[in-house]
């Protein structure tokens, strides 16, 4: 099984190197919580100035803008680009809580990241 923590840090590097993805980050500065349901893993991703700036272990200090919940394997596959998050959402493999515009932005970001 892929290791979620490492996957997220690779994801951070890829996001910050990808100029197309960074165009999508303009004006969007969410706190994204990633919660694995089959373990005690939770991470907070902080987006700032068109960068995925930090990843903290544990829940967000303040209420997260977007929360993504799912099994570790599914979450890892999404952040590795093996699984389309929009399809995973439609199929009930993940749950996303937050404003719809933030959910859409997060899906768009992962879609572009693995295609461009």
């Amino acid at each position: 099984m892929p290791e979620l923590r490492g996957t997220l840090f690779n994801f951070k590097d890829l996001v910050n190197k990808n100029s197309s993805v960074r165009k999508l980050l303009v004006g969007w500065e969410p706190l994204i919580e990633i919660e694995a349901l089959d373990g005690d893993e939770r991470y907070t991703l902080i987006v700032r100035d068109c960068n995925l700036e930090e990843i903290h272990e544990g829940p967000a200090q303040q209420a997260g803008t977007v929360t993504v919940r799912g099994n570790k394997q599914v979450l890892s596959e999404i952040f590795e680009g093996k699984l389309n998050p929009a399809q995973a959402l439609i199929d009930g493999q993940i749950e996303i809580y937050g404003q719809e515009k933030d959910m859409i932005k997060l899906d768009a970001l992962t879609l572009v990241l693995w295609d461009v």
Partner: peptide, 19 residues
């Protein structure tokens, strides 16, 4: 509705053709 909203985000960032 959901997918169209996502495509709109991409179009507004000039990424539609790539995706």
């Amino acid at each position: 509705s959901y997918l169209t909203s996502m495509l709109m985000e991409l179009a507004k960032a000039d990424l539609l053709e790539k995706i």
